[in-house]
Structure formats: structure tokens, C-alpha cells
Design a protein around this nucleic acid. Sequence first.
RNA 1: GGAGGCGUCGCAUAGUGGUCUAGUGCACCGCCUUGGAAAGGCGGCAGGUGGGAAACCGCCUCGAGAGUUCGAAUCUCUCCGCCUCCGCCA
Length: 430
Amino acid sequence: MLDIHFIRENADVIKAGAAKKRIEVDVDRLLAVDDERKLLRQELDAKRSEQIRRSSEMQYAKGFDREKLLEAMRQLKNGMTEGEEKLKAVMTEWQKLMLMVPNIPDMSVPDGVSDAENIEVKKWPAQSAVEGGEPATFGFAPKGHVELMTALGIADFERGAKVAGFRGYFLKGDGVLLMNAVWQLALKHFSAKGLTPLSVPSLVRREAFLGTGYLPQGEEDLYKTQDGEYLAGTAEVATMGYYMNETIDLSVQPVQFLAFSPCFRREAGAHGKDVNGLIRVHEFFKWEQVVLCRAEHDESVRMHEWLNRNTEEFIELLNIPYHTVVNCGGDLGLGQVKKYDIELWVPAENTYREISSASYFHDFQTRRLNIRYRDAEGTMRFPHSLNSTAIPTPRILVSIVENYQQADGTIKVPEALVPYVGKTVIGGAR
RNA sequence: GGAGGCGUCGCAUAGUGGUCUAGUGCACCGCCUUGGAAAGGCGGCAGGUGGGAAACCGCCUCGAGAGUUCGAAUCUCUCCGCCUCCGCCA
């Protein structure tokens, strides 16, 4: 949510921003409703003021005076009830419209409709081994992770579907060790960056979803319980909710969390996509970086680069080819100002696949969540919020097993993971 | 799952229908006093929101929302949270 004063003064900027994001919003309607809101409020305030004045006279009034006062108060109250009802109706529309106003994308965000128009800003390793600029070289035709993992008995998709349904999976044996090794390495790497580990709820009440911007628009993508909670698709929701309705202290340092949680996604709009394997599943586990910092654009930009770089470094530890893209306007969410995606090389598909997403929001989320801090001058302000994937599992296993596969179908364990897996090769002689 | 209790300013507490512009203590900030401090004295000390150039003025908020009333921190209902006891349970 944006500040209504800001919207009033910058209606054209908002409209241009929404157009860049390909989001429809009726700013003019909002401004008209807001005018009405202010007018009704003023009328009502004047009446309330009179009511308060009169009712204090009431207690001392006797006999005829009292009767007269009572009658006057009744009429005043009738007028107030009418005004209150009008205001309530106006406020309902006002709030609905306010929740629809998107945050403004940064100048540096490229124009474009969909992820197809995201722009590569970095490729690693810098010199790709293969002509055409693509990174992976094998002396053999690389297999896909479903085939590899099934053959090694470290994942079971048939039984996954039998037990959990569409997009179900089991990890087994070294598959579990590999996932656990990624968690261990992530905990070590990101903690060392100064992030505080946080284990967070996945079962979360509606409020934090509204606050982070996943609701009201994203209802379709969420699982809901019979008690009214939702299953979060990311630890961001609960982590941002952590300080909701609180005043935090940012005088010493930003809030920096490394949150872990199971994640649940209905993938309602993606029925035909990635139907096999570990790329797109309904439940998974993710480490997420979440930051609250001072409400300064430069600070947001600095933290954004830092968060994204943290994840790039982690991928470099695993030594998997990747590139980083800056997302175009049409690929940005309602609250996002700018977003980077990190995409890892998936040899069997001969393409990069998204593994991480780093975004900043300015005060869009904290305003909705009512998280505040006192700045150096003592003024209450909404901090800036950012979040970025640290690492998702089991999706990362796709790139690990495909990039580290050997001709005989065994998988070399990335060096950084060896201490946690406890072996150098998965599969082969036992 | 059952029974009961409780949510008031940063913290602690007072307040059971109008005199509440929510009092008091602690903490915090400024000043006085002091060689410096403590103690003491004086003053300040909530967040929103609307009007105004400003001074200032109006309105809202006693967990949240709805209701009763001319008038609600106070009465009623619903929800949220916390505590105690019983039951069940990893």
C-alpha cells in the first residue's frame, strides 16, 4: 500500500508505473473517492464535536431544558448515523482501491510483458565452456534429474503421486542426505553473512498475507484450512508478520533474518507446466532472506544487491553455472520495486531455470503490516522491506544432480557438500 | 475438548456510566541545583487524522470489531491474545 498523500500528488507517476507493470488500476476513481472521504470525515467530525459538547451539558440540565436537549441530541444523532453509513460505504471502496494500487517500479527496470523479456545482467562462469555461450560440457548426452534420481533410488515420483497425488514426490537415502547437506551449507553460509536464523510457521492467519501483498489478489494460489488460516508459499509471510503492529529499533542495524519453513503452493495457474520432477511441486522447503532497513532508497538498493549477491555466492560454492536477470515491469508483483532472478543451468532442458528471486518493496509491505521505527530525528516511519530466496529445496537438487552427473549415471557430490553428505559420489558400487 | 480469569500511555498500576482533557509511580529527555554526581525541584514525555502560512484548533484510538445509551475504559455480544485448572496427547 502506498501513502494516499503520495498518490494524490503523484497520480501520473502511479499510472505510468502501473502501466509498466501491466496492472490495471483506476487512480482517478480512487482520488474521487478520497475527496468524498475527506469531506464526509470533516462533516462528521464537526457533528461529533457538537455531540461531545452537548452531552456534557446534559448531565447538569434539569426538567424542560433537559427535554429540549434530548430532542436536539436525537436529531443530531440521526444526522450522524446517516453520515457514518455514507462514510462506511466510501471507506469500503477506498480500502479496496488502495489495496490495488501497485508500487512504482524503479527506473532501471526494463520494459516488457513477461519473463521472456527479463534481461541478463550477469553470467557465471564469465567464460562459458561451450560455443554459443552455454556453459555445460559433457562427453555424453546428459540425462534429466527424474531419470537420474529414479535410477539411483534417491527419489520416487511414482509413489509420490500414489500417496500425495499430482506433483507428489519422495526423497530417499542419499537424496535426503543431499537435501540436508544443502540446508547445512546454507545455514552456515548465510549465518556467516550476519543473518539471524529463524524457524517460522507455515500455517498463517490472513493478516500477514494481506500485509505482504499475497492477498487479496492471490487467493487462488493458496491452500486454506477449515479454520481459516492459509498455508504459506514462502517463509516471507510469517517473517514479515513477526514484527507486525510493532515499533522496531533500527538505530543499530537492519533486521536481517534467515527464515526456514515448509512452503505450499497450489500452482493453480500452472497446470500444464513442469509436470514432472522437482522443478514445480506443491510442497517444498525453503531458506529465505528477509530484511527490514531504514526508509532510504539508497539503503534498499544496497541491501538488495547484497541479498542477491549472497545467493550468487552460495551457488558459486556449489559451482553450478548460473545467470542473473533483472525482471521486466510485467514480471513484477504488486508491491515490488525491482527484482532479480537467479537462474541455474539445467543441462537436460538446455536452459536456465529460476532458483532465486530477490526483491525490494520500499515501505509498501510495512505500511500494510503497520511495522514502524523511529528515525534519528525521532519521527515514526515505515521501514523498507526486502526479501530474497536463500535456497529452495528440493528444486536446487535438479541442477545439482544434472550438472554433476557422470557418464555412468552416478553423481559427483559438489565439494562444498561433501562434508555434509559424507561421501564424494552418489551411486555406483556399494 | 471443558471450566474460570485477564488485556488501560515504554513498564507497573488507578479508574464499574458524565467531574477522564485517562490519574499516579518507575523509566526516559531538558533545565535548575553541584567541583562532578546522587538526591531534590521545575518542565516535557503516545500514535493517527483533518483544517491552517503559522500559532493553534477539531476528530479518532483504553486488545479488535459490533451494539445499548443523550453520553462507554466502565454495560452487552463476537473475535483475537495471554494466564490458571481439568481432559487428551507427540
